[in-house]
Amino acid sequence: MLSFVLRKGLRAGLTVLLLATFTFFVLRTSGDPAVLLVGLEAGPEAVEAFRRRWGLDQPLWKQYAIYLQQLLSGDFGQSFVGNRPALEVVAERLPKTLWLMGVTAVVTLAIGIPLGVVAALRRDSWIDRLAIGVSVAGLSLPNFVVGVLLILLFGVALMLLPTTGSETAWHFILPVATMATGDAAVFARFARSAMLDVLNQPFMRTASAKGLDRRRAVMRHAVPNAAIPLVTVFGLYVGRIIVGAVITENVFAWPGVGSLLVLSVETRDLAVVQTIVILVGVTMVVTNITIDIAYRWLDPRTAEERTLG
């Protein structure tokens, strides 16, 4: 187990380093933050002064070396806006995004998995067809379209819910609904297909033969076995929900990390973009390691296969 964690940790570190490096060079070769930060009408001296002040006049390799050195000592750099630590700027926005993602994840799983399970158990019934129909619709509509439709319906036409911002619990409803619609559909489809696979397995017949009633057989044997592929989907879902948050936060002016990322890319606030990318990278890496560990726990055969292999 220790070597497993060490191996994974090493790979994770390398992934994050590559990500940070890639982001560093792409940002610096795709536009000049000085032009944006000092204004379009500023003269070249103002632009040069800005570059000097922030070390952007140094050769790229030197900037990269300084960046890595700072990064290893836990310094993510300073935001161009307000000269504040980038980590602090991102950390300020993080709770809003975590709340949005957390609530969305709960709603997504609470709707998606039961819907998929019920659809599998009532295969070819109207519930199944409805679940599949809703899933296809949810998957087909991009977040920004769903978001605008919900705003027009519940914010403008019915005036029931606020359209932008994050001040109250009411503000959660539309962005969460926007993100959860598509994601719940994904889980419903996977849960249905995983359940159908499991329900046809011999051990389910054995459970029935033993005299277990249908409900207990499903809960005790089918659902845990169907959970394994769903764990994989959950790993992918973390990435999807981060992307979803970026789009949704912009549509709903939700002051989280997603909208900060878009703004920072636009203004080339380098340190902030790099911090967010590293944060997302670390999140994905940790998620993947957790998923691997969860696999070993859910299905010990995967660990044995690795050992034997």
Binding site: V35, L36, V47, R268
Partner: peptide, 10 residues
């Protein structure tokens, strides 16, 4: 161009 940063690049 994506942004003024690209228009202003030297």
């Amino acid at each position: 161009k994506e942004s003024w940063a690209q228009v202003g690049a030297e």
